[in-house]
């Protein structure tokens, strides 16, 4: 087990190196000279010169790469080009709002989708099942933008049930006042795809031989679904949810943006609009590391829930 973790951590090194190379290639090579990129966005010539010096734009690419690697190793990506805020502070202050929305959203959507998936799989092939699946398909076909625009307009603007946007200082206020409509929208958007996916996980299990054995033992359908099938279906569900966590951080960027929630996703959008490269670079590298760690955690979790898995 320990050996497995150590080997997995060791295997992350080349992947991380690849991420660094990719980011460097994108931003230093394709992205090009900040003087050109920032033309018209920052008019202060002195500031631009400063940035060019920091990046070593005039020096060979390998020196620039070394500068970038040093930044990563020290965890110091410098300051934002447009606001001059330290990047470490940007990430630390943007993370909590994102998590305030995402953690409850993730828990709720997973639980609701599992419940619905079991229910739908139980009546598989019936009219209900088909109607739910077609509704899911239609629901999935409407752009997330439309959900946000309409929900915000109807529930916040017209009916006034929720604040239209904003963010406060107290956690409880944020969670129950500002985050509730975003979470609701997140649920409306994510339940359809999760339900479809989890349903196939459950259906995969329902056709297994052990379900037939459980029936031959005389167990009730309820017990078969909620004990035997659910326990097995939870294995792919848990790994899926774990692996999807880091992507979720970015995935909610539209919601954060519409509701002016000062989170990571909104920060990325702002940075792209302002060509604020250091912010994007830093977030990309951090999120990549988080993804790798969570993938490892997902595998360990897999081991914990599935006695068949041997980690070697």
């Amino acid at each position: 087990m320990t050996a497995y973790i150590i080997r997995r951590l060791w295997q992350m090194v080349p992947t991380l190196a690849g991420v660094v190379l990719l980011v460097f290639f994108l931003f230093n090579w394709i992205g090009g000279d900040p003087a050109y990129v920032l033309a018209g966005k920052i008019s202060n010539q002195e500031q631009i010169d400063n940035i060019r010096r920091q990046l070593g734009v005039d020096q060979p690419y390998w020196v620039q790469l070394w500068i970038f690697v040093k930044q990563i190793l020290s965890g110091d990506f410098g300051a934002s080009w447009s606001t001059n805020e330290r990047i470490s502070s940007i990430i630390l202050t943007r993370l909590p709002p994102s998590l305030t929305v995402l953690v409850p959203l993730l828990i709720l959507e997973t639980l609701i989708a599992i419940g619905l998936a079991l229910a739908v799989a139980y009546v598989r092939g019936s009219l209900t099942d088909r109607m739910v699946m077609i509704l899911c398909t239609i629901g999935l076909s409407i752009s997330i933008l439309v959900y946000i625009i309409v929900f915000q307009y109807v529930f916040a603007y017209k009916l006034g049930w929720f604040p239209v946007q904003g963010w406060g200082d107290s956690f409880a206020e944020n969670l129950f006042r500002y985050a509730s409509l975003p979470i609701l929208i997140g649920l409306a958007v994510s339940i359809a795809p999760n339900l479809r996916l989890f349903r196939t996980f459950v259906l995969d299990e329902i056709n297994q031989d052990y379900v037939r054995t459980a029936r031959a033992k005389g167990l009730s359908e309820n017990r078969i679904m909620w004990v035997h099938v659910l326990r097995n279906a939870s294995i792919p569900i848990i790994t899926y949810v774990m692996a999807a966590l880091p992507a979720l951080l970015i995935g909610a960027f539209l919601i954060e943006r519409f509701f002016s929630i000062p989170g990571i996703g909104r920060e990325v959008i702002l940075a792209v609009e302002r060509s604020d490269f250091p912010v994007i670079k830093a977030i990309t590298v951090y999120v990549a590391v988080a993804t790798m760690v969570f993938n490892l955690l997902a595998d360990l979790m897999y081991k914990a829930v599935d006695p068949r898995v041997q980690l070697r």
Binding site: Y210, T213, A216, K217, R231, N232, R308
Partner: peptide, 19 residues
């Protein structure tokens, strides 16, 4: 089922719940 009449199958590996 399981009380008066019970049954065993061809593939014991998949017929038992693995978890």
């Amino acid at each position: 089922r399981g009380a008066d009449i019970s049954m065993i199958f061809q593939e014991p590996m998949t017929s038992l719940n693995p978890v």
